[in-house]
Design a binder for these strands. Structure first.
Length: 507
RNA sequence: GGCCCGUUCGUCUAGGGGUUAGGACGUUAGAUUUUCAUUCUAGAAACAGGGGUUCGAUUCCCCUACGGGCUACCA
């Protein structure tokens, strides 16, 4: 390995929402870059106008921002290798493609898509390569004057790489080790499309070279086209500068088979995108981890451990720890099925770990969404500390904290009414009196003692009035210690809730 | 079909020629919590199959099976 500066890139095409696997690729790139004091660049691969989606690039930037994985160079941040959008680099690619033609490593092809489709349908195992290229319409099979005529006439054409015969191409993948291919099995991929735009194959090689990328991490689905890229690095004369490759394992569907897709999320009820994505064309809204109430810390953590571990039993990592401990050769080779249950566990762990202050803005937002306005931050902080251990996703804070801000709208009457007695009515009325007569009852922390004493005095078992009391304050059978809730609610509010509920219970 | 990659509990994984094959999620059972959750304890649960190599293979090699990816003028 050379000791040149570490530079990695994430190169998405702006075609829609950012998938789990995409974010994991970002994360591994980022971790590797930061660990080695290198640069992380974001390059937008928008060479396919037919698939380009408005707003997708901005969305990707927002995702990276939410995750805290900011690129050092990008279309917005700029950088010394700008532009970072391939559509803005269009002219560059043609030059290299022509150079390859000149050197005999590529050629012009005039076949139409229809003709090729027909061949693919009719000829078993048809591929544009050694076996068939001579019988197709290209600058290898046609006489020179005909090629010139075609070119002069402006006939639509592409430039294809000429894959050599009988060669073995191999390289050392940082994750998989030695990988090899027979060139006879590789087809003559299109390098430059008829519209003048490069395909991924040409663009990725040219840009990785020009942007001085030292390590290239991408999904395993790219492994079969690696020989094309290797050949290009060689033919362009850049072999010595070729990055080290690492092909990341895929993230698979939790059930069934295949790559995880956004459809699976909809089908199985979990997000697949980092953030909610709205498709303006179809009007389709695809939910994201962020909107569902995941913390970025947890999201990154779960992604990091999907296919990577540090060799110890540690599972919870901060970003800084990940940077310190990450190592590409500890990434596993096999694809991983995504498990939403474990994903939620990570989030619950992070909610427990984070202090109330850092949770506050998010909790506040989720409460406000439900129409609850928080005007006392200290009160909210106390509430968060009281309930955060029982929340898995941020929206759970509404269910767990709502009653601290508004009276229960509904009561779990089934748990109360069947067992209601007049003695209980007497007890709660006495409790109101007790509270009214004792200024410091709640604050003094002896409320619990007094409550129990009162129950005995009225001939009731404490257990018989505890649950009704909880339901009066909370509405249901959940929440922290009931006396903590009462203390936080305060005397007036507690009395108000007892009074209101008593009417319902005895109705 | 062809090519490439892969295969340890249901899932994510550790390990690696001789181990009671470890952890986590989930699950089951208990304890704690006069609610629920948390927490704690315990349990069930895995080396795909067949050949080699070896004193000994889950570990190394080969084959098979299975899984996945690619096979576009998409990335």
């Amino acid at each position: 390995m050379t000791d040149k500066k570490v530079r990695v890139r994430f190169a998405p095409s702006p075609t829609g929402g950012l998938h789990l696997g995409g974010v994991r690729t970002v994360l591994f790139n980022y971790l590797f870059a930061k660990k080695h004091k290198g640069d992380f660049v974001l390059r937008i691969e928008d060479t396919d106008q037919t698939r380009y989606v408005d707003g997708a690039e901005e969305y990707i930037l927002d995702c990276l921002k939410w995750c805290g994985l900011q690129p050092d160079e990008s279309p917005v941040a700029g950088g010394q290798y700008a532009p970072y959008r391939q559509s803005e680099r269009k002219a560059i690619y043609r030059e290299y493609a022509e150079r390859l033609v000149m050197q005999g490593h590529a050629y012009y092809a005039f076949d139409t898509s229809e003709e090729l489709d027909k061949n693919r349908k009719e000829i078993p195992n048809f591929q544009y390569g050694q076996a068939y290229r001579d019988s197709l319409r290209n600058s290898l099979s046609l006489p020179q004057h005909e090629v010139d005529a075609l070119l002069d006439a402006g006939t639509p054409h592409v430039i294809r790489i000429k894959i050599p015969a009988d060669e073995n191409i191999s390289f050392n993948d940082m994750i998989r080790g030695h990988v090899s291919f027979e060139t006879n099995q590789v087809d003559d991929k299109v390098l430059l499309k008829a519209d003048g735009m490069p395909t991924y194959h040409l663009a990725v090689v040219v840009d990785d070279y020009l942007m001085k990328i030292s390590h290239a991490f991408r999904g395993e689905e790219w492994l079969p086209s690696a020989p094309v890229h290797l050949l290009l690095w060689d033919y362009l004369g850049w072999k010595a500068d070729m990055p080290q490759w690492a092909h990341l394992p895929l993230i698979l569907k939790p059930d069934g088979h295949g790559k995880l897709s956004k459809r699976d999320g909809a089908r199985l009820g979990f997000p697949v995108y980092a953030m909610t994505w709205f498709d303006a064309k179809t009007g389709e809204l695809t939910p994201g981890f962020r909107e569902l109430g995941f913390l970025p810390e947890a999201f990154l953590n779960l992604l990091a451990t999907l296919g990577w571990n540090d060799g110890t039993d540690q599972e919870i990592f901060t970003l800084d720890e990940l940077i310190e401990k990450f190592s590409i050769d500890r990434v596993s080779k096999a694809g991983a099925k995504f498990d939403f249950e474990k994903a939620k566990w990570f989030n619950a762990e992070w909610i427990k770990r984070l202090n109330a202050e850092s949770l506050k803005p998010k909790v506040k937002a989720t409460l406000e969404e439900k129409g609850i306005t928080v005007n006392n931050d200290d009160y909210l902080l106390t509430v968060i500390n009281l309930i955060k251990d029982r929340c898995v996703l941020i929206p759970d804070f509404y269910q767990q904290a709502g009653y601290f801000f508004e009276q229960p709208k509904e009561y779990d009457l089934n748990s109360v009414k069947p067992k209601w007695t007049d003695a209980k009515t007497v007890f709660f009325n006495a409790l109101i009196t007790l509270l009214n007569n004792n200024e410091a009852a709640l604050e003094a922390h002896d409320f619990e003692t007094q409550f129990k004493a009162l129950a005995e005095e009225k001939g009731l078992k404490v257990g018989d009035v505890m649950l009704p009391f909880r339901i009066m304050l909370v509405g249901g059978k959940f929440g922290p210690h009931v006396f903590d809730i009462a203390a936080l609610l305060g005397k007036a509010e507690t009395i108000s809730r007892i009074t209101k509920a008593l009417a319902e219970f005895t109705a």
